[in-house]
Write a protein that binds this DNA or RNA. Structure first.
Length: 423
RNA sequence: GGAAAGGUGGCAGAGUGGUAAUGCAGCAGCCUGCUAAGCUGUGGUCGCGAUAGCGUCCCCUGGGUUCGAGUCCCAGUCUUUCCGCCA
């Protein structure tokens, strides 16, 4: 959620920035400014009346104490009108604040200056590319065939137990999953991230805190009896650790990592892209979350990007980094870098990680702040990224490292898997 | 699931109708041969204001009673303890 103060201060900059997303926010911004002015003016009146009322109550108290009940009763008569006015103003201010808030929620984050205007993924900019795309022979198979051939993943079994999109990993497939989780967590920990094991269900307040609610409600699995939601990413429980907190500026940067399964309904996505591991209802992911001072958040973003690149390098996967254009970036993001690994057998790029700086957009809803040098509360910047999402890494691993007699496990993973080849 | 007790500032902890004691911690300043010291100041929020300052709201949440609510009433919620069930 954008800060109303920021809109009030520089409405033109907001409107200009949002144009990169292909949004004309002129009307919304103008309405917001009107509502904001109205709210503050009513509030001013309200506070004045409340002040009068407080003063009167105080006087009445003093009069009673000194035994001058008659005078007190005379004053009491004056309070009736004030009370009425306060009640009414209160309702007015609430109504204006509600519509202001509602409107504010419709505005996405303003893109960073480096973000190009654009409509969709075709307008994303490639900022770097690394690793060699293997030239596979004609017998090269996509991962869903490899998974079956080597009995790594059983999709049908998942359908029997639960439903489509809930695969069962078996044997070396299961061990590889466990190995990757440990590998990623160890790497993240070595890079200074504190490891967490958070709940896999969250309450509604946490859903609102990170912005899954109210807009993406249909994307989460929900347990209405208990009012809980299955997490779509570890970002939700991890970031909400810091909800309503005033963190110590000396602790910056606050770096956290967690492995969790992720649950997504993926309502409305069908077709080719859902084949195999490309789109699942339950998958494993190791997430990194960073909280930092506004002055340092972009340095931190670069660090996180470098860290994720290091992971892919160790997995010996060819990848490219994209800076998402305005139209393709997420609602809450100011700047997002996507990592895509080339899937040789599918002959296309697969998104394996996404690293974003949300600036204050998330912190504003979370009320996540720190005390600046002057002792004033200021919103933190939050960033997060996947490091990494397992299914597509697994897919790329299987496809890119396939050989005639099996699948080669990259060096860095061998001590985790306990085997260097899938056969 | 049953019963009881209880949610007060970063923490501890008073306050049963008159507008949030006190201690500790943190921060800022001052002082200093009593040195694991002393003194002073310092909660959050939003609004007005250039600063100083002024005001509003905040004692789990939402309602209610009252001139006035941390305190009384109603509803909800969470925590703790005991019992039951249980990996």
């Amino acid at each position: 959620m954008l800060e109303i103060q920021r809109i009030r201060k520089a409405p033109e900059a907001i409107i200009e920035g949002l144009k990169k997303r292909g949004i004309d926010a002129t009307e919304t911004v103008n309405t917001l400014i009107e509502l904001d002015a109205k709210r503050r003016s009513i509030r001013h009146d309200l506070e004045e009346k409340q002040h009068q009322s407080n003063e009167l109550a105080k006087e009445i108290g003093i009069l009673y104490k000194s035994g001058r009940g008659d005078e007190a009763n005379a004053l009491k008569a004056q309070t009736a009108g004030l009370k009425e006015a306060i009640k009414e103003l209160n309702e007015q201010v609430q109504a204006v604040a509600d519509s202001e808030h509602e409107l504010l929620l419709t505005l996405p984050n303003v893109p960073h200056e480096s973000v190009k205007a654009g409509k969709d993924e075709k307008d994303n900019e490639e900022v770097s590319r690394e690793g060699e795309i293997p030239s596979l022979d004609e017998h090269a198979q996509p991962h869903w065939e490899l998974a079956e051939k080597y009995n790594l993943i059983n999709f049908e079994l998942g359908v029997k137990i639960t439903g489509a999109g809930f695969p069962v990993y078996v044997n070396q497939g299961a061990r590889l999953q466990r190995a990757m989780i440990n590998f990623f967590l160890d790497e993240n920990r070595a890079a200074g991230y504190t490891e967490y094991q958070p709940p896999h269900f969250v309450n509604a307040a946490s859903g609102y805190g990170t912005g899954q609610l109210p807009d993406k409600e249909g994307q989460m699995y929900e347990m209405p009896v208990d009012g809980l939601y299955a997490i779509p990413t570890a970002e939700v429980p991890i970031t909400n650790i810091f909800r309503d907190e005033i963190v110590n500026a000396n602790d910056f940067p606050i770096k956290s990592t967690a492995y969790t399964p992720c649950f997504r309904r993926e309502a409305g996505s069908y077709g080719k892209d859902v084949r195999g591991l490309n789109r699942l209802h339950q998958f494993d992911k190791v997430e990194i979350v960073t909280i930092d001072h506004p002055n340092n958040s972009y340095d931190r973003l670069d660090e996180m990007v470098a860290h994720v690149a290091g992971l892919l390098r160790k997995l010996e996967l060819p990848f490219r980094v994209l800076r998402l254009c305005g139209g393709d970036a997420g609602f809450t993001s100011a700047l997002t870098y996507d990592f895509e690994v080339y899937s040789a057998a599918q002959e296309r790029w697969l998104e394996v990680s996404s690293v974003s700086n949300f600036e204050t957009f998330q912190a504003n809803r979370l009320k996540l702040r720190f005390k600046d040098e002057e002792g004033k509360s200021q919103l933190c910047h939050t960033l997060n990224g996947s490091a990494m999402a397992l299914p597509r890494v697994l897919a790329a691993l299987l496809e890119n490292h396939q050989q005639a007699d099996g699948i080669r496990i990259p060096e860095a993973l061998v001590s985790y898997t306990g085997f260097n080849k899938i056969s």
